[in-house]
Each structure stands twice: as structure tokens, then as C-alpha cells.
Write a protein that binds this DNA or RNA. Structure first.
Length: 803
RNA sequence: GGGCGAAUAGCUCAGCUGGCCAGAGCGCCUGCCUUACAAGCAGGAAGUCGGGGGUUCAAGUCCCUCUUCGCCCACCA
């Protein structure tokens, strides 16, 4: 196949993408007998928020997949989508302009399916255009019935093991989404607020105390007051009672070390619940439970005249009334951070609800041990996992009061209230549509109320290794657990990585994977964490693909060390374009000089041939070391440096004399070295520059090598190592440099013939360098070289040749 | 408040287990249309390796400390 004069990525890339698809180049073959390399692909949410930051992280893992494929491993590389859960609900609500609450669950679920399926098609197209080598026949989505079955199976088995409990407990609650949320789903949100100094009369009539609060609307929920035991100002208060303003109930004043003496007045009210300290006190001192908020964030009957008001309104009204009645001593505007739901930004409340939990606090040590069993890349991210586990405060709340998700396989007996679970063989079940099919084991009752909650999405995504292995299914895949590698970004270590370790530990008594590859974030040109935005190249991968080729974008994604953030900027992207062009041009040139090349022929390599091949070996070693350590960027950098400078700038220029010459004896070893060096480079670049390397491979190398694709060719493992040539070739290049410097300083073209060179060197070196003479003459265009023994290596140029 | 990372040429970054005069790309300067490539080639200028201590024959490279930035967590009465 002849190469065109110019490389047109726009035409070539789709052509090879089709070829790979048609030929099944990336198809997983469970029966190949090759060692497995299995990848636990992150299921992106289908909520439409794909930006170059995602591409960045996926490409890095993808390059690693290709490396292992070239190593001769059978690569299990599925794709998947996370299409259930809150993000999809909100996405559907937005797309269809509906509200889930306003329709039957089944109807809403149908809408969600419709919307997510459409989005998935677009996603598959997008990933294909980036040259992804996943096997699409392995696709799963988290809403697939068999995947739901695995999630429900996980629930049933954990419940059998006594790991799961259902309990009324204070829970982080989002009044907007009207669901419980997990500790990990929260984020800080800066909100302007007001600090109010409130006066609480003492019950014995002996004066009053002052409490500073930002949440006066929680007064009806006040159950105690605390001061610090060492605070001399308030020592006399302990044990007495105070009257809650506006509401009149009396609460006891207690001393506890958790009180900060220097905040506000040093006196704090404890409400059920304002924050986690309230919960701790409530538990520790067995305080009353006074819930003043309902699930929608409105005040309930406990708030008396304020009942039905939304938190903010109640706050305003109460402050007015407090002022009118003389309880308000002062107010101060402040800026403070509140705990908000990361999905919608609404400040969270603590409510008491019946929720399902997985007990994890008691196995923290075991989870830490699992953490150590995993190879973290880069290793310092293990510390984040460790600290998260060490500082866990809550068991994992897995129930959500939402609609689109995996239902709990649970009913409650109307007779005794006990939960009744489905039989495993009946999974997946939706309890709102069927019954348990058996009477209540506790009381024999036959009337049931379905559990209407759905599972937290992490309940499913934490199972991705088990889903890949089809855990508990009839067609279970053997040998997949633990998987080889999980790629993910560092922001979800505390969620996805953590929950997955929990599940694998409990279900398979092992780690989920051997290696965890943690990527950084892509930053937009103003150095902010990238986010989806239309009309912006960084925020819109489709737009990026119009402006840059997939190979250029992949090169960018692989340009930084694993785990580092990287800037998405035009300058950096230009580097990839240059390299692709250079690779194409150099290979096209080589192909024109390879006529008559016979890979099987015996050749006697010249010193510079031995030099370039020894350099290649060195580069392969370093590049491979990098890839073994998940450092694709080391591989690219080493290879680029070799290809551009050693191979193109030096070797090619040196070998041209022989490649164009009539002397076949001299030409053949040059062809041999050129072919090997180029084919080696091509394969080192293949995991990243997937399209251009395929184009060049198919045009030049396939006839010789026979593999259907460069991506099925073996990873280079050249062992040509000639220390003599490596060292002396480098010294010989110093002579070339001197000649070039002379021409440059004298404003001469590089093609200018030189009258002669005078090279001085110690005798050993001199003797060695003389072996390079024919090539040195050719590349410097010198008519002759005069060799002289001397001290340091030095080269003098006699001047341009006459005429 | 705690943790993790980063601080190296104007810009973006590489420098692994400490060792010849600190590197690359972009940008800049001077040249060159040399039989693959001007999206190129040759040559060049440019850095107190954040500050301060210490270990060592020897430190961007190890230890301590300080400063600045980023991320994560906690607090947020």
C-alpha cells in the first residue's frame, strides 16, 4: 500500500476504527489460553456530562490496555454505563421536563430507560472516535436486569451474613431530592448567613444565658444546652435548666469537652439535629428526640405556629418574633460553609428515618489490610484511602428514597412489621410489582407492604468486578477475580474504590483488583477543574475532535505523569500534531528507501547501525519499565526523544548516504537498522498514537510482519546491545555536531561540502572513531578526515570545499 | 485544624533508588529551501532548581523548618 503525500487524520482515523471493528481486533477470547489481563472499566454516568477530563482519564487506562495486549495477554476490556440512580433521574427530569413525583414509578422508569439508551448510543460513538479498544460485546449497564440481580444478590447475601441492618437512625437528608445521602455524597458550600445571639431565661428565674446560633429555626428541636467543663464563666450553669425562647420547653444544661469555649458565647444548644455533634450528644446522653423538620424541609407540628414553613422562612419569622419578644440580643452577618448535597447543592439536614445500612465500622482494620494488598499507582493515593477508612464515622447507608434504581428485594409484613426478603432464585424482583411468594416467617402473615426505597447507586457500582465476573450467574466467568486493574480518578477514592473494596472483601474474601491506576484531572486553560460546557473545546469532546485528531488528543492525555493534573491548552496539543506528522513523514521516506530489503538476509552492520539499534534497546527497556509502572508518559517521552533526535535528526541523516548510494553492501545494513528502529518506534507509540501507527504499519510493515494490526504485534523486546557502539557512536556524533556548528556559524547550508575535518583524540578513541569514517564523511560532506592523536576529542573544520 | 500533592528556563513540564558542567517541547534570537518533513533542519541566548537550616566527600534529588498554591477531609453552635 502506497502512502499519500500527506497524512490526513480526518480520513484515516475513521477508516481504521471501522477496520478494527470489522476484524474484531479487540475481541476478548476467553479460550485463547493466554494469560488474562482484566480491566474494571469505570461506568460513566449517562447524564451527559462527558468532557475532555473524562477522555483524559479513560485514554490513559486505554493505553495501558493496549500495552498488555501487545505483551501477548488476553485483555478483558469491557465498556459499561451507569444509567441508574439519581444522576439519571435528574437527567431524565431535565430532558423530558417532568418530575418523578408526579407519575407512577413504572412510567418514570420507562422514561429514564428511553433517555439513557439514547445517550448511550452517542457515547459509544464518541469513545469509538477516540480509538478505544474496549470490546463492546462485553458491554453492561447498571440497569440491566442481570446486573440488578447481582446487586440484589449482594444485598441478600450480606443480609444473611448479618452485615445489613434496617434501623431508625439519624441520616443525612436532602430536602430537595428527598432522599438519604451518604457521607461521601456531600460537599462544602459557602453560604452567607447570620449569627444570632439568643437569650435563654433560666428556669429558676435567676437571669438568662446567651447562645449564638445560625439556626434559630431549630429552637423547637432543642433538647439540651452544653458548656465546657473547664469554662469558669459558665460553671454555675451546669445542672440547671433553661427555657427555650418562643417554645417554652425546658432543657438541661450539661458540660461536655466537645464545646469550643472560644466560639460564640461558649454556650451551645443541642438540637435534633443540627450537626454531627448533636447526634453524638443525643446518643451519649440519651437525650429526647425532637424532630421539627419533615422530609421536604418544612417545619412540622412541633414548630407550632411555624408549621408548614420552609426552613428559611421559618428562620426569618422566628428571628422577627425573637426580636419582638426581646430574646434577640444581636445579629452578625457571616459567611460560613454548610454541608450540601453534591448533586443539587441543597444544604443537608439530619433526619431520623428507617434506612438500610451495611455495617462497615467494625471491619475497618480488615479494609486497611486490603488496601495494602492493592498496588496503588501512584502509590501515595493509598494514603487517601487509608485516612478515609480510619476516619469513618457512619456505617454505609444504602437506601435512597428515589425512584429510578435497583429496588430492595424486600417487603414488610403488615402483621408484625418484619422485613421479608425475596428468594435468590426469584431475582431480580421489584417488590412494588410482586410479592415475596411466601408467608411471613415471623408471624405467618400474608399481607405485605413493599419496600419502596431503591438502593444507593454505589450499591451497584461497588460490584463492577463481580459484575464483570457475572458473580453467581449461570454463565459466571471464571478467573476474573481479582481483576488485574481498576482505572479511576482520585476524587472518587473514598466512594468507588472504597465501596468496591468493601464488597469484594465481604463477598469474595479478596481484593477487587491487583492494581489501582489513579488518574488526575484535566484543567481548562484558566487552571480550573474541567467541566462540561457546550461550545468550548475543553468541555466538549465532539468539538475537540473537530479541531484536533484523536491521536493528538490522546497524545495530550498521555503527556503527564499518572495522577497529575494536566492543562488542556492549544500549545500542548500542538506537540501531538507535530509528532504525528513527523512519524508519518519519516516512515514514508523510509519506505521509499527500503526497496530490496530482505529481513532474513545476513548483513554486516556498520558502527552507526549498531549504535542506533543499541539506543533502541535502551529506549525499549525504559519505555517498558514505564508501562509496567503505569507510566505511559515515560514511554511516550523516551520514545519521542529517541525517534525524533536519534533516529530522524541523526541516524537518518547519517544513513542517507548509504541509502541513496549504489553500494548494496553498504545499503543493506542501513536498511536493516532503519527498518528495525522504525518498527520498534512505531510499536512503542502504538498504545497512544493508535491510528497513525496503524496506517503506517499496514502500509509498510504488515507485509513483512504478518500481524493483522500493529495492535496485535508483539511489544518490542529488542536485545541488540553493543556497548562499544553505544559509547563511541555518541562520541562520533560530536564530530558531526562540530561540522554542523561550523556551517551554522558561517551561514552555510547543511548540504555545503567541506574541504576536510581534522579530528584529534586519544589513541584508543581515535582508533574507534576511525571506524565511523565512511558515514562521517557522508553526513558532514567533508572530502576527507585527518586523524591525529591528541588529548581531548576535538574537531576542526578546514572550510568549505573549493568550487 | 488534619492529610496528600506541587513549587526546576518567559510558558508547559521531565529529572527513578543522591555523583561528569541541570534537561525537553513551546516561545525567543541567528541562520539554512540539505535528494522525508519549512507543521522542517542547524546553531544560540535564557534557570540563586520557592526561602532557611541540616546529613554527606557530593543534594532539584535525603531530613527538619518556613512560605505560596492545588486537592481531599474535618469543623462550621
Amino acid at each position: 500500500m502506497a502512502l499519500p503525500r500527506r497524512y490526513k487524520a480526518r480520513d484515516s482515523e475513521p477508516r481504521w476504527q471501522r477496520y478494527w471493528e470489522e476484524e474484531g481486533i479487540y475481541r476478548f477470547d476467553p479460550d485463547s489460553g493466554k494469560p488474562l489481563y482484566t480491566i474494571d472499566t469505570p461506568p460513566p454516568t449517562v447524564s451527559g456530562a462527558i468532557h475532555m477530563g473524562h477522555v483524559f482519564s479513560y485514554v490513559q487506562a486505554e493505553a495501558v490496555a493496549r500495552y498488555h495486549r501487545m505483551l501477548g495477554q488476553e485483555v478483558f476490556y469491557p465498556f459499561c454505563f451507569d444509567d441508574n440512580g439519581l444522576p439519571s433521574e435528574r437527567f431524565t427530569e431535565k430532558q423530558k421536563k417532568v418530575r418523578a413525583q408526579d407519575m407512577p414509578r413504572s412510567e418514570f422508569v420507562k422514561l429514564c430507560l428511553e433517555v439513557t439508551k439514547g445517550a448511550e448510543e452517542q457515547f459509544r460513538d464518541l469513545w469509538t472516535r477516540f480509538g478505544f479498544s474496549c470490546d463492546w460485546t462485553l458491554l453492561y449497564t447498571t440497569i440491566d436486569p442481570w446486573v440488578q440481580r447481582i446487586a440484589q444478590r449482594s444485598f441478600l447475601r450480606l443480609r444473611e451474613d448479618g452485615r445489613i441492618y434496617h434501623r431508625e437512625a439519624p441520616t443525612l437528608w436532602c430536602p430537595e431530592c428527598q432522599t438519604a445521602v451518604a457521607q461521601a455524597e456531600t460537599e462544602d458550600s459557602e453560604k452567607p448567613s447570620r449569627f444570632h445571639d439568643l437569650s435563654f431565661p433560666l428556669a429558676d428565674g435567676d437571669g438568662a444565658l446567651t447562645i449564638a446560633t445560625t439556626r434559630p429555626e431549630l429552637l423547637p428541636a432543642c433538647v439540651s444546652i452544653f458548656v465546657h467543663p473547664d469554662d469558669p464563666r459558665h460553671a454555675s450553669l451546669v445542672g440547671r435548666k433553661a427555657v427555650v425562647p418562643l417554645f417554652g420547653h425546658q432543657v438541661e444544661i450539661r458540660a461536655d469537652r466537645k464545646v469550643a469555649m472560644d466560639k460564640g458565647s461558649g454556650i451551645v444548644m443541642c438540637c435534633t439535629f443540627g450537626d454531627t455533634t448533636d447526634i453524638e450528644w443525643w446518643r451519649e446522653y440519651g437525650l429526647d428526640l425532637r424532630i421539627a423538620l419533615d422530609r421536604r424541609g418544612h417545619m412540622n407540628e412541633l414548630a407550632g405556629p411555624y408549621q408548614g414553613m420552609y426552613v428559611k422562612k421559618a428562620r426569618r419569622e422566628m428571628v422577627e418574633d425573637l426580636r419582638d419578644k426581646g430574646f434577640l440580643q444581636g445579629s452578625e452577618d457571616i459567611e460560613h460553609t454548610v454541608n450540601a448535597h453534591e448533586r443539587c447543592g441543597t444544604p443537608l439536614e439530619y433526619l431520623v428515618n428507617r434506612q438500610w445500612f451495611i455495617r462497615v465500622l467494625d471491619i475497618r482494620d480488615q479494609l486497611l489490610a486490603r488496601c495494602d494488598e492493592v498496588s496503588w499507582h501512584p502509590d501515595y493515593f493509598a494514603v487517601r484511602f487509608r485516612h478515609w477508612v480510619e476516619n469513618l464515622k457512619w456505617d454505609w447507608c444504602i437506601s435512597r428514597q428515589r425512584f429510578y434504581g435497583v429496588p430492595f428485594p424486600v417487603w414488610f409484613c403488615e402483621g408484625c412489621g418484619e422485613p421479608v426478603t425475596a428468594a435468590e432464585e426469584d431475582l431480580p424482583v421489584d417488590p412494588t410489582e410482586t410479592g415475596p411468594g411466601r408467608p411471613c416467617p415471623e408471624c405467618g402473615g400474608e399481607e405485605f407492604r413493599p419496600e419502596a426505597d431503591v438502593m444507593d447507586t454505589w450499591m451497584t457500582s461497588s460490584l463492577t468486578p463481580l459484575i464483570n465476573a457475572k458473580w453467581g450467574e449461570e454463565d459466571q466467568r471464571e478467573g476474573l477475580i481479582p481483576m488485574s486493574m481498576r482505572p479511576q480518578a482520585h476524587d472518587i477514592i473514598r466512594t468507588w474504590a472504597f465501596y468496591t473494596v468493601v464488597k469484594s472483601h465481604l463477598h469474595t474474601d479478596s481484593v477487587p483488583w491487583e492494581h489501582l491506576m489513579v488518574s488526575g484531572h484535566a484543567l481548562n486553560p484558566s487552571r480550573e477543574k474541567m467541566s462540561k460546557s457546550k461550545g468550548n473545546v475543553a468541555g466538549d469532546p465532539l468539538l475537540a475532535l473537530q479541531q484536533y485528531s484523536a491521536d493528538e488528543l490522546r497524545y495530550w492525555a498521555c503527556s503527564s505523569r499518572l495522577g497529575n493534573d494536566v492543562l488542556f491548552s492549544p500549545e500542548v496539543l500542538g506537540d501531538g500534531r507535530r509528532l504525528v506528522t513527523k512519524l508519518f513523514n519519516a516512515t514514508r521516506f523510509a519506505s521509499s528507501r527500503l526497496e530490496g530489503y530482505d529481513p532474513a538476509a545476513e548483513v554486516e552492520l556498520r558502527p552507526f547501525d549498531r549504535w542506533i539499534l543499541s539506543r533502541l534497546t535502551r529506549v525499549i527497556e525504559r519505555a517498558s519499565e514505564g508501562m509496567e509502572d503505569y507510566e505511559y508518559s515515560t514511554c511516550v517521552r523516551e520514545c519521542e526523544d529517541f525517534f525524533w533526535h536519534d533516529l530522524c535528526d541523526n541516524y537518518l541523516e547519517i544513513a542517507k548516504g548509504r541509502l541513496y548510494g549504489d553500494d548494496e553492501e553498504a545499503r543493506r545494513p542501513a536498511q536493516h537498522a532503519l527498518y528495525r528502529a522504525l518498527y520498534g518506534s512505531l510499536r512503542l507509540f502504538a498504545p497512544v498514537l493508535v491510528h497513525v501507527t496503524e496506517e503506517l504499519y499496514q502500509a509498510i510493515f504488515r507485509d513483512y510482519e504478518g500481524h493483522r494490526s500493529v495492535h496485535l504485534a508483539p511489544w518490542p523486546a529488542d536485545d541488540y546491545a553493543d556497548g562499544w557502539a553505544l559509547d563511541h557512536g555518541q562520541r562520533a556524533l560530536e564530530i558531526v555536531e562540530e561540522a554542523r556548528r561550523y556551517k551554522s556559524e558561517n551561514k552555510l547550508g547543511m548540504g555545503t561540502p567541506l574541504a576536510g575535518l581534522r579530528v584529534t583524540a586519544p589513541s584508543d578513541l581515535l582508533e574507534a572513531l576511525r571506524e565511523f569514517e565512511p558515514d562521517l564523511l557522508a553526513v558532514t560532506r567533508a572530502e576527507s578526515i585527518a586523524w591525529a592523536e591528541g588529548g581531548e576529542l576535538a574537531t576542526e573544520v578546514e572550510g568549505p570545499a573549493e568550487g
